[in-house]
């Protein structure tokens, strides 16, 4: 007899502890007009909805088990992203549908949301303070990454590294991973995209042809004054690296006559290739991810991008010094 009672009470305990780990939103909102309160996930899927009006001011969403993440809470005309976990949230007060800024609502149970909001940088272009990565948990960081501007690969990596694998199933984390992936192409250490382009004589040349050597890719066009100026600067030092480095200038000219004229005018001593699809239309340009020229990339002997975003002779020389000093070729 005793054994059975023990077993049942154990079951009950387990049940209640599971039940408390669900999200619950309890609200009581007074409004002069009928308003709709709803909860959606980041993909816009409706999870719960209630119509709030006089005599019917209270509503409950849940209890439901959710993946801790950002959700979109809509009250009347106002939608806000909220970080929710499997806890109870209360919303009480007054909502003004005509002038939402005159609303007066109080929220409880949103400590984690409020905490992560404090780490949103004041200026959009600033990065998140490093403190966030030690103070916030993985789910909060995932939510934070969704709310800030993540526009370079290394920055996105700092978020991804902190999110435990178990938490990568949230929508914001999925979004972050996709972002990181798309940014990867604009980072260093990745394989430099290959190409097959004609030289002056029309013979097709590929990046792979130079495996084992350092390669400088110099993207330019005949109409680009600064490009031509910098190429004159390259001419002053390229001989110092000639034994280790292959210089390649890739033109993005669309007009063949302009290209030919420029070649005659400039007397470029190194390999010249031509991507005739043109600036802004070239798939090669898209794969290297640049929007302005001059744009130079230094590729290491293994074919990996060593440095990118080089826009003048000074920077190029610095990069070449760095890579040749570290390598023994």
């Amino acid at each position: 007899m005793k054994k059975i009672i023990f077993f049942i009470s154990l079951l009950l305990q387990v049940y209640t502890s599971m039940a408390s780990e669900q999200m619950l939103i309890k609200g009581n909102i007074k409004s002069l007009s009928k308003i709709t309160v709803s909860l959606k996930n980041l993909e816009g899927k409706l999870m719960a909805e209630a119509l709030v009006q006089k005599q019917s001011e209270s509503f409950v969403f849940g209890p439901i088990s959710i993946v801790p993440d950002l959700y979109m809470l809509t009250i009347g005309k106002t939608t806000q992203k909220v970080f929710l976990t499997n806890t109870t949230v209360t919303i009480n007060g007054y909502y003004d549908d005509a002038d939402p800024q005159n609303s007066n609502l109080e929220f409880t149970g949103l400590e984690q949301h409020l905490e992560l909001m404090t780490y949103i940088p004041k200026r959009i272009k600033d990065q998140v303070s490093p403190e966030a990565f030690s103070r916030l948990n993985g789910q909060q960081l995932s939510a934070l990454s969704y709310l800030v501007k993540v526009d370079n690969y290394d920055y996105s990596k700092t978020f991804v590294e902190k999110i435990p694998v178990a938490d990568l199933k949230s929508i914001s984390a999925q979004h972050l991973l996709k972002k990181a992936d798309s940014l990867k192409q604009f980072s260093t250490g990745i394989n430099a995209p290959d190409f097959s382009l004609p030289d002056e004589k029309g013979k097709l040349v590929s990046l792979a042809d130079f495996k084992g050597r350092i390669v400088v890719l110099d993207f330019w066009a005949s109409w680009c004054g600064p490009c031509r100026r910098e190429m004159e600067v390259f001419k002053t030092f390229y001989k110092n690296y000639e034994d280790k480095v292959q210089f390649i200038s890739i033109s993005l000219d669309e007009d063949p006559s302009k290209y030919k004229t420029a070649l005659q005018e400039m007397n470029i001593p190194w390999l010249k290739l031509w991507d005739k699809s043109g600036f802004g239309k070239s798939a090669l340009q898209a794969s290297y991810g640049f929007k302005a020229i001059p744009f130079c990339v230094v590729v290491d002997p293994e074919g990996k991008v060593f440095k990118r975003n080089i826009i003048n002779g000074v920077e190029l020389q610095k990069a070449l010094n760095a890579i040749t000093k570290n390598k023994e070729i």
Binding site: Q80, P100, Q101, S103, L110, L114
Partner: peptide, 13 residues
């Protein structure tokens, strides 16, 4: 004048 408030308060008023 009212203190400008968003839909969220950071602490109980």
């Amino acid at each position: 004048q009212l203190k400008a408030q968003l839909i969220k308060n950071t602490a109980k008023e």
